[in-house]
Design a protein around this nucleic acid. Structure first.
Lengths: 334, 334
DNA sequence: TTGTAAGCGTTATCAC
DNA sequence: GTGATAACGCTTACAA
């Protein structure tokens, strides 16, 4: 493979490698048509293609960026990656994909390796405990953007759903349909901003509207268990706001296990549109986040930074969209 | 970022860069404890980390591999990528992810760019028309493996589902349950081996068992349209074998649109387990393919090749697994 | 035990 | 218009 270098081309075409390099980089302007052709045919014949690693060393530009997500298996991450890869492809960049598994240690390791590989920029769904590292990146003006989460103290622009509005949209929709028992299901809020924001807004809304709080928050298994308990004790509320797709899976499993009927026995509204929402029985009403838009804007900003444009360090909030389907009963507005 | 080089460390520690290099590469054996400490503290203080690009240029090893899938949004591809990234991470490798969109031109471009970037190996779900390129890779003994598809004439090992067995499993299951009208839904078989294999086996089975063929094959939109027609003309068979997840989505949409009841009005068995199969109403009976196993074995072989091990150029076939759920009526075995 | 120097495949500066 | 030559940051004989 590609053992042929610019030197071989130079020899074969009877010119210096400088000239070949000029040719390769489109500095034709003042090159005799003859040499041009000798070079081009040498390249053709010897099947030469430039070594990008050498080029990168010289140019200090690798034409690749890193993406660190929690887990590529989550559809949100997949969509983010796809939108960013598309943008990168346009810019003739490649993307290195990493799974942090929400593990700060793994994340840190990835960041350091990516930097060592001299990637020109990074987009990351950050975990926690790496604030210092991120801050150093920010100080060094290293091109980086966050997605889905932000870190209070770190000066890196962030692109994420307006979680407050998302929960409010769901809550208000339920209220509009006459619901007064509204529960909330989520993975542990802990250190993860979007989860925390969603849960906090739910609580605030409960207080504001005099709705009794019913929160199931825990790891997937715990959700399943708690839901199970609630059903058995007949303590399940009329309706549930489900904080994301994974939590929704658990809810739907519990519903099936107990042979509940949505929306008769339970109304469900989920944050995150899932691929089956539309043809599920019943179709799931959802507050969707614009993943592709988020990814694309993040990429846009990142490449802006890479190309030396000015940018604001701010948190960009994206508006969710309510998609009404069949999983919420209409009790009539009282 | 990382503007500090091995030279700076050498100066700061009052040694030559050779010594630093030795230190970095763990050639401690015969190094005075003193120098060792001077170096280590210099590294600490100056926050040095080696430039992998320079290292790659010298070593002819980039510690990164490329993955080309049709579209990362398909869950099979996502799972393959995840399993390969895991394996790569173990080996201290990174992965560059590319979407070919089943476009041979895009694919070719990616392959060439990846090679130019000197990636140490590639795993690809190949399209078509690039046989010559792949053959050159094979001849050059460039480390590469195929997934999900193979190319007849190309000497690159391939890892894929045993499609024949998968279809037979589905077909026989249906027969066992007393079905005699068995249809088949797929995207266009065209140039894509797994699709073709599945469809061919279906046809063969029809002949063998005297079952009348009913095939809906086309792009997603066409599937929807044709299904629609069939329902309206009351020509839908008792049961449908659905060739993959995307086709399944269309079937499920049609079912919902026409308010059909599975499995009363129609039995469905799908190739590919989908995340919602378990808690769908009804739960979907499925012939699952072991994506993670496929990905992991492919990675295993790829890294074997990279590490210079001998390998067979063969097509590795993986056995599917029938997961019986609720979407197939039992008419009783006649 | 440590240092000198050449080389990996490019690009860039500056001559000619 | 074209070509030496140094440089990018690292590794590795080979020397000392």
């Amino acid at each position: 493979m590609s053992k042929v270098t610019i030197n071989d081309i130079a020899k074969n075409a009877n010119v210096s490698k400088t000239t070949v390099s000029h040719y390769l980089n489109g500095r034709y302007k003042a090159m005799s048509i003859e040499t041009k052709e000798r070079i081009s045919s040498a390249i053709e014949v010897m099947d030469y293609s430039p070594n990008v690693v050498a080029k990168s060393l010289k140019n200090k530009k690798t034409m690749t960026i890193g993406i660190i997500v929690a887990n590529i298996l989550h559809s949100f991450s997949t969509q983010i990656i796809r939108s960013i890869e598309d943008y990168a492809h346009e810019e003739k960049y490649h993307v290195i994909v990493c799974n942090s598994d929400n593990d700060p240690v793994k994340e840190k390791n990835y960041i350091q390796m990516l930097l060592a590989k001299q990637v020109d920029g990074m987009v990351v769904i950050p975990t926690w405990n790496n604030d210092a590292l991120f801050s150093r990146l920010a100080e060094d003006k290293y091109p980086a953007v966050f997605i889905d989460r932000f870190i209070e103290t770190v000066k890196i622009p962030s692109f994420m759903l307006d979680n407050t509005v998302a929960i409010k949209t769901a809550f208000v929709h339920l209220m509009d349909k006459g619901h007064r028992e509204i529960g909330f299901v989520s993975q542990p809020a802990a250190e993860i901003p979007p989860r925390k924001e969603r849960q906090d807004e739910y609580k605030a809304l409960c207080v504001q509207h005099g709705v009794e709080k019913f929160i199931v928050a825990g790891e997937l298994k715990a959700i399943e268990r708690n839901l199970d308990q609630a059903v058995k004790k007949d303590k399940l509320p009329e309706s549930l706001i489900v904080a994301n797709d994974l939590a929704l899976f658990e809810v739907l499993k519990a519903v099936k296990a107990h042979d509940l009927k949505i929306p008769r026995d339970l109304s469900v509204i989920s944050i995150d549109d899932v691929d089956f929402a539309e043809f599920f029985n019943p179709a799931i009403t959802v507050v969707a986040q614009p993943s592709f838009k988020i990814g694309t804007e993040a990429a846009h900003t990142l490449f802006g930074i890479i190309n030396g444009e000015e940018y604001e360090i701010e948190t960009h909030r994206f508006k969710p969209e309510l998609i009404e389907r069949e999983s919420v009963t209409d009790y009539g507005n009282e």
